[in-house]
């Protein structure tokens, strides 16, 4: 374990605090969107990041992309602190694909202009080469070259997402941050995009951070999975371990909520409380305790510390010491 190669991307104790206005005269309060997160994204792997709306996934994505400066902590690119990199150098390594192929593409620009945008912004190569590179990228993502002169409104949702992928890949990045890349798409289109992402990963040796609320998609794609709750990573393990042996009560509820198309099963009872946490005023102790079916007295006052068991990290009082096997909550 001593001389492992540096991960393509890593965060070290990253925290991101937003000041949220409380209305006139009441000043503002801090909201810890990301709260001390250390996450490694090893080269050539797919790391899945899951968790409910507002837990801080997109904020993490923005921090990794250098679009959001963390309040504290550091981001490492291949082991080197982000402080030593310019925006352009970061953009050459890491590119995003966002959720909504409708709003993430400028409707007034042609596809050629959209796909070549990163080259233009970061002045990569000679402008005379851009058109040819756009053509190559359209081939790569399976779009006919003639769409180069089209506008986003003339393309289907799946085609637009291919455009977004072409735009991300034209910089030949090492890492692609996919924030809900298929959530806005129909399943028949989703499967095409997932197949494409898989193919491109092989072809270009890409590393992915895959943010998705669809756990079946994450299980299909990811080598490692991190589960986020209210700005913390509460459990992290390689994919098989996490899906076969989920430990944190939130992870269990999350996995228990996946509705596989099995007509012999009904809708599971998650055993979760319905109280929603307020991120500006998070519950004391373990922030999950108001919803946790396994909540103990200590959980109400003491925040749990991360417990590491091989590559399986869990932050929950149930796993504070030695790992005790438990029967599933379901």
């Amino acid at each position: 374990m001593t001389e492992a190669p540096a991960p393509a991307l890593e965060t070290v104790e990253v925290t991101c605090v937003f000041q949220v206005s409380q209305g006139l005269l009441r000043g503002s309060k801090p909201l810890r969107a990301v709260n001390g997160v250390s996450l490694k994204i090893p080269r050539g792997q797919v790391v899945g990041l899951v968790g409910e709306s507002g837990c801080g996934k997109s904020t993490m994505a923005n921090i990794l992309l250098g679009l959001q400066r963390p309040s504290s902590g550091d981001v490492l690119y291949a082991g080197n602190s982000a402080a030593g990199f310019s925006r352009r150098e970061i953009a050459r390594r890491i590119q995003p694909i966002f959720q909504d192929p409708y709003s993430s593409l400028n409707p007034t620009k042609t596809i050629e202009s959209i796909v070549s945008q990163p080259l233009r912004i970061h002045s990569v190569g000679a402008p005379s080469e851009w058109s040819a590179r756009v053509g190559e990228m359209l081939d790569v993502v399976g779009l006919p070259r003639r769409v180069a002169s089209s506008y986003p409104s003339q393309l289907s949702g799946g085609q637009r997402q291919r455009v977004a992928i072409a735009r991300a890949l034209i910089m030949r990045p090492e890492v692609v941050i996919c924030d809900e890349p298929t959530s806005a798409l129909d399943v028949s289109v989703q499967s095409q995009i997932l197949n494409l992402l898989q193919d491109l990963k092989e072809e270009f040796g890409l590393t992915y951070l895959l943010i998705s609320h669809n756990l079946a998609v994450v299980q299909h794609m990811a080598d490692r999975v991190a589960v986020m709750y209210l700005g913390r990573i509460v459990e992290e393990a390689d994919s098989d371990t996490l899906f076969n042996d989920p430990r944190h009560p939130y992870t269990r509820a999350l996995l228990g909520s996946v509705l596989t198309p099995d007509p012999r099963l009904g809708v599971p009872d998650t055993h979760l409380g319905a109280v929603f946490p307020n991120p500006i005023d998070p519950p004391p102790g373990c922030t999950f305790h108001p919803r946790c079916p396994d909540c103990m007295t200590i959980c109400r006052s003491e925040p749990p510390q991360p417990a590491v068991d091989g590559g399986h990290n869990t932050e929950c009082h149930l796993y504070g010491g030695a790992v005790t096997p438990r029967t599933a909550t379901q």
Binding site: S188, Q198, V217, Q219, H220, M221, S239, T260, P261
Partner: peptide, 14 residues
């Protein structure tokens, strides 16, 4: 088209 845990294998084409 849909990945089904336990039925489709990781990374397999959908």
């Amino acid at each position: 088209c849909i990945p089904i845990p336990g039925r489709t294998r990781r990374g397999e084409r959908l």
